[in-house]
Amino acid sequence: MKPPNFQYKRPFSIDEALAIIDNCKDLDVRIIAGGQSLIPMMNFRVAVPEVLVDLGAIQGLTTIQKDSDFLYIGAMATATSVMQSDLILRNAPLIPLAYEHVAHPTIRNRGTLGGNLCHCDPASEMPMVMSVLQAKLIVASTRGVRCISAKDFFKDLYTTALEPDEILTQIRVPFASHSTRFAFEEISLRKGDYAIVGIAGSIETKQGSCKNLRIGLCGVSNVVACFDQFSDLTQGCRVENIPTEKIIERVRSQINFESTASVSAAYRKYATEGLIRRVVDRLRG
């Protein structure tokens, strides 16, 4: 479990990083952030990069700020710093709620939000949370800067919309209004394991009636899943009356539950239904 030889670069600015990538067009170049997913893959020789570009020395990539519309989270902010940020707790409480279920403190001290999103593991919490929150991802290359919405960013198992020469630099999370409710539930075999099933929910309420119910799922299928087609069920509904069973049915009908060595499809389905019920009950208040 040792990686083969690779070149290691540690640029001090984004521009320098992008230039390195540009100069290595014919080589397999990889960004390294916290290394908590990439290093194991390299040790297993599943990932065999020829050049590693470490973003750890670039100033400004770890900051967490806000203006009147968005939270701006630097891609290199560690899970721990995001979890412990007051700004985030106040304006996007779903993030720290979900982070409670991500790995262990030692891993969160090194692992970054950006790395977590670029890794795009469908069992991972943050890609799904960012989809529910309708975050935007800012990516840069020598060709310019793009802004990609979460729902377009997470493509498939371990696959994002990033081009090989692009770096994720920032995550923009729209403010939650005070009338938005969030809930998060997860089952993992042990505390900190990847989810067998994890469910996030958010709903906006206005004078008792509600809109924009969104339910995200991780762990159950091969893609980052976020469902938001519920308006016919929630239209004009008071939040405490939203039809739980119909919501569950709608989500369930769109998922193909599969068995793995230690988790049967039947259990996954049962647990998913149960957790959606819990999440919706939380949202109802």
Partner: peptide
């Protein structure tokens, strides 16, 4: 007796 095992056995 994992949760999944328990579910399958209860059934």
């Amino acid at each position: 007796v994992t949760p999944s095992f328990l579910y399958d056995n209860l059934h």
